[in-house]
């Protein structure tokens, strides 16, 4: 009897969760469907058509020629920015003198919108994959760098004293004290950087290239392949959602202690 009740309860809870997840997307798709079928515009495509085109266009050779290289580019640039940003951030976070020297310059570079670097990078690096990676790095690195600096600076002095008393230094000091203390801020920086990376990946492929997701979308638009263009945009959205879902999974593991500390503080 109780088993039945429990099963019913779990099913009901699952149903509520599913409704919460899918209610708004379904409504939006229906709205879109109604609007696009009522509209006489050539540029509005119904979701049904987009879905059919999506399968046709992307479940093909294009997946290997355009999608995978773009995602690879994105991840390479992002990973490089993550390594450079945290390394520099730790160095600057630990030394107030270096920070004072570097800060005005950093503020200047940070203020430059990365897309305007495209012409410059094309001249300096050339029109090739390193240029695209460089563009992604140049945009992604700032939130990672600045958040890491903040995180490293906010290492608890009592914990730092504890490490000194017990002779914890060198690599163990860096990984156990500095990086772990700064990890909530580093993760916040990485999360912002991920969104920027996706945007810059698309932009880097819109100039003077012949393959990639960004290139394909522009190409479809120019050749009036409207359903194909829409399907490309949908694909970009799906890539974004997938990456941020993966990110949240990683973040939850890395910051399990942080969530625990905050939950404990709330209970008091």
């Amino acid at each position: 009897m109780t088993l039945v009740i429990r099963t019913v309860r779990i099913t009901r809870r699952g149903a509520v969760r599913l409704t919460q997840l899918f209610l708004l997307p379904v409504l939006l798709i229906l709205l879109w469907w109604w609007y696009s079928s009522a509209s006489a515009s050539y540029y509005m495509t119904t979701p049904g058509e987009i879905a059919a085109t999506f399968v046709e266009v992307w479940f093909s050779e294009r997946f290997f020629v355009d999608v995978l290289p773009s995602v690879g580019l994105l991840l390479t640039g992002y990973a490089l920015a993550a390594v450079l940003g945290t390394t520099l951030g730790v160095v600057l976070g630990l030394s107030s003198r270096m920070r004072a020297t570097a800060e005005p310059v950093l503020e200047f570079f940070r203020a430059i919108p990365p897309p305007v670097l495209v012409p410059l990078l094309m001249l300096l690096v050339g029109v090739n994959t390193p240029m695209k990676v460089a563009l992604i790095v140049s945009g992604c690195i700032w939130p990672i760098l600045l958040n890491t600096i903040e995180g490293v600076r906010s290492v608890d002095p009592v914990l730092a004293d504890t490490c000194r008393c017990y002779g914890v230094r060198g690599r163990r000091w860096l990984t156990t004290l500095v990086l772990r203390s700064a990890s909530p801020q580093i993760m916040a920086g990485l999360r912002q950087a991920l969104a920027i990376a996706i945007i810059l990946m698309v932009i880097s492929e819109m100039f003077a290239t012949t393959s990639g997701l960004g290139f394909s979308i522009v190409q479809f638009q120019r050749s009036f392949a409207i359903p194909e263009m829409w399907s490309g945009i949908v694909l970009l959205g799906l890539i974004g959602v997938t990456l941020s879902t993966l990110f949240v999974q990683v973040e939850r593991r890395v910051l399990r202690w942080y969530d625990g500390v905050r939950a404990a503080a709330r209970d008091e």
């Binding site: 914990l159 004293d161 504890t162 008393c165 017990y166 914890v168 156990t176 772990r180 990890s183 625990g260």
Partner: peptide, 30 residues
């Protein structure tokens, strides 16, 4: 080397990302 210190702020002198065992063991690894 042969001195240990217990601070007043226990919450801030323990590593939240290490287990109890990990906290006690860390100085011994060093």
């Amino acid at each position: 080397r042969d001195m240990s210190v217990v601070f007043q702020e226990y919450g801030r002198s323990l590593f939240s990302w290490l287990t109890v065992q990990g906290n006690v063991e860390l100085p011994l690894k060093e």
